[in-house]
Write a protein that binds this DNA or RNA. Structure first.
Lengths: 330, 330
DNA sequence: GCATGTCATGCAACCGTTTGCACAATCATT
DNA sequence: AATGATTGTGCAAACGGTTGCATGACATGC
């Protein structure tokens, strides 16, 4: 049916192994022969069967990106999307396919299937999946965690943005803008990245310490912020765990007729596409998700190809100053 | 190295073909034999090599989801994410892998590679990739377009939400709420789905027809809306092409001290997670992206497996009434 | 001018399954 | 009891490549 390497070989008057070598370019071939082979491939519109190739070479030519999607939102999460885009780009450049898999499946069997059935040559995992059982099953199979695993171990590869440093930068910026009573708003406090951000906040904050946890929704952030802002000596600035918390906070300020940035300063993590459309625009601790994805993929390929040891990469965040902290002289 | 089907066969005292048949369950096997084979598989922790399986069966066990991502945003696009999640779910249930690919590559060569090198058994394509050249290359290879191809042809499979009906519903709702001067705001007018929405608007609208195109950004929507609202007989209601346009419009209303919903009514397409956090909350023409993805995947598998002919599926949108059209009696 | 080395290519085994065909054993029919 | 149908399993040939080893041609060194 389909045209095989043998058909090409016959037409070019060479052996199929020669054709294979021409395709893979990992052997010295006479320019003349090479030309004849290429001509034959062109004439027959030959496309190597990647399945056969994989079987023979033992490499699937794909990497798996696991998403811990308990609900549909996780996939729509822009953090994931941006990273995925960058990962795909790196993979594409190497001729690799990207397989996405929902890791929230029954007992992580899905992830193991991916590696044990040779469907992928490497895995990109979310921190939440990094548990002893999986780690044991994974052995020395190449993988990189996108984020910091809660159980920190040296023999793990991960790439993450520096959440502590980000929170520190947020607090310092607010201090520079002469805010003195800085609170931290939002975040399920159990999540590792939230903990690290809070840690950075605590270390840098010099005024009263106020940590306002929420259930992660904007509505809850609104309710929590309302209560906090009604207190007599309420915070005059907030570091928000994400944009949703900031939206809730903005709404609360509007409701209480508090001016942002003059009465209340706001810095939020994550640069949502909408962060610059709020009123006022939000000052942001920007996470370079594209870079995060790129670095993750590149580390994974290094692990797959060169067999380098485990590495940990920490990326800095950047401060994007916008109106929500641009205090007028008072 | 790895344990193969032959190892299992030897341990179970049968031929490897018997093991294969047990695995695939497509032959009658003595319960006793079956049990011995399962025991051997368990003992050896056997996992079939999907690569070999694919080669022998001629099926890759994967479907490709192509995204037309000119920039990083497309991947973070909420619409895409939700659909992808649903697609993955359906594929997962069938033991299929989902490969994502950026279709905006040089001359669509990427898509062709996916099918010609047997990397996938079927494709889900965005409408923008549906062009004669690709269609010719694709031949009778199974595929489904997620959206309506601009070049409508009967011999194409696609799944889309009914944009015309959605726009009609939006206009009718505004009419019921006693708005009389309804405009359409937003959207690159060249995109197919925008055209269809505008058509629905035009067909249903009984008052003056006002179509305000934008470049798709919230900022531009703000500028365009500002200008429109400053006119003496400005529209008292808008159907927005997406949430971003609505955000720009909301900002314009705030700037001009126009009350939403009393002075201006707003209905927007697409239920962004943030649509219910705006002030006031947005009335929405909701697109069931999860259903869209599910139907698309299911149609694709029907095409792959049963060889049914091309089909077109149109899903209805739903109206989610919120505050932005909830006019007080005046 | 002969031993040695390098280069280009062929040969054939192998990657780990699936599957058509063959055949022996068992069962049903008359 | 003989015959035919059915059932369970083995054998071996694919599936379409890759790759270690062998070989012949030619260049190099002394």
């Amino acid at each position: 049916m389909a045209v095989t390497i043998h058909d090409v070989a016959k037409l070019a008057g060479v052996n199929s192994s020669t054709v294979s070598r021409v395709i893979n370019g990992k052997a010295t071939i006479t320019p003349d022969t090479k030309e004849r082979v290429y001509a034959a491939m062109r004439e027959l519109d030959y496309h190597p069967n990647s399945l056969a190739r994989s079987l023979a070479s033992g490499l699937s030519g794909a990497i798996g990106v696991v998403v811990d999607a308990r609900d549909a939102e996780a996939f729509s999460n822009w953090f994931f999307g941006r990273s995925l885009f960058a990962i795909e780009k790196v993979a594409q450049a190497r001729g690799y396919q990207v397989i996405i898999a929902n890791g929230a499946q029954s007992k992580g069997g899905n992830i193991e299937t991916l590696m044990k059935e040779h469907k992928v040559d490497g895995l990109i995992l979310p921190p939440t999946t990094v548990k002893p059982a999986l780690m044991e099953a994974i052995g020395d199979f190449p993988y990189v965690v996108l984020g910091t695993p809660d159980t920190l171990r040296g023999d793990t590869s991960w790439v993450d943005n520096n959440n502590e440093q980000g929170a520190e930068m947020a607090v310092r910026h607010l201090q520079e803008m002469a805010y003195s009573n800085i609170a931290y708003l939002g975040g399920y406090q159990k999540r590792g990245f939230t903990k690290r951000r809070v840690k950075g906040y605590q270390r840098t904050n010099t005024g009263r310490e106020t940590i306002l946890a929420t259930d992660g929704t904007s509505e809850n952030a609104y309710a929590v912020a309302m209560e906090a802002l009604k207190q007599p000596e309420h915070p005059d600035a907030f570091v928000c765990n994400d944009n949703l918390a900031a939206f809730g906070l903005l709404k609360a300020c509007r409701a209480l007729k508090l001016d942002v940035p003059n009465d209340v300063g706001i810095v939020a993590f994550d640069n949502y596409p909408l962060a610059e459309y709020t009123d006022p625009q939000l000052t942001i601790i920007d996470i370079d998700t594209a870079m995060l994805g790129e670095q993750t993929a590149q580390l994974l390929f290094r692990r797959i190809e060169n067999k380098v040891g485990n590495q940990q990469i920490m990326l800095s965040t950047t401060l994007v100053k916008r109106a929500s902290t641009e205090r007028k002289a008072r």
